[in-house]
Amino acid sequence: MALEILRPGLMTTVQDEGRTQGYALGMPPSGAMDRFSYHVANALVGNPSGAAVLECTYLGPEIGFSQATTFAVTGADLPVHLNGKEIQPWASHRAEAGDVLGFGFLRSGARAYIAVAGGIDVEPVMGSRSTYTLCGMGGFQGRALRAGDLLPVGADATGTPGRSLPAALVPDFAGPAELRVVVGLASYRVTPDSLAAFFETEWQVTPDANRVGYRYRGGLVEWVPRTQPRGAGSDPANVVDIGYPIGSIQIPGGTEPIALLNDAVTGGGYATIGTIISSDIQVAGQTKTGDVTRFCPVSIDAALGARQEARARLAKAREAIEARS
């Protein structure tokens, strides 16, 4: 069983849950940016949690099925077509050999997920099938897919067509995004007024927004004047090079904040002022260039609460899918 990439879309990569080891050597986790949509896609086709899927950014691919199978599309809101006929997203469908999956233009969100029964069966690297394109590691030949690629799919899995996620549980990606942030790290480098203003600003996602990180525009940040410590460099935005958590927000030059995401650079010399909580990384990953984003400060306890809520929401989705199959 294979998927033939007829058109690759803009940026389509193989992703799973990502790596848990390697950060200490500079290797980011990668993995699906929108965990909820990723897990639901696998649940819909009856894959075990952790199977690899395709993540399609902004522009959907065109894919031919070499054999009959079951597939589902979740994530960003864009029309899904099977042989040119519109079909329901957030639902599992049967494809026959020779069928072609295609997409219309993006309406909201940024990333769609395509799960196929059996999962995308590329060789795992460091315990994951996720693609890390910056260094050409993992996934399918370490890169985004191209026309003509033949993607292996796990054998002897027929899947379960006819499953769907109730509409009430489908996330809405339209409208401004709110990303909860645990303030900290070197936030003391920013003046209190400026830090407060940061959280009141409506930031806009720039075109410079990918799996490594998102750059935003819309405000200014003022640094507390100081004599720079030894080894920190002369710019007030600089610190002695330090590790960057996934989700951390840095502000090079004080003008355009960058939030690091799944393919983050693991460390560097910019002051970071806080970190997007783990359950909101997926919210950031569904914003697209031009979208409005607000950052909202929360306590560590609130972050842990949000983590439980995200887990409960996924569990509820899985139960609903099982109940409707």
């Binding site: 645990v182 920190a232 958590p245 989700g247 970071t272 970190t275 783990s278 972050a303």
Partner: peptide, 14 residues
């Protein structure tokens, strides 16, 4: 805290 999944320990600014 770096969000809910990271702890950063800055031993010194220099």
């Amino acid at each position: 805290f770096g969000g809910d999944e990271w702890i950063v320990v800055q031993l010194s600014e220099a």
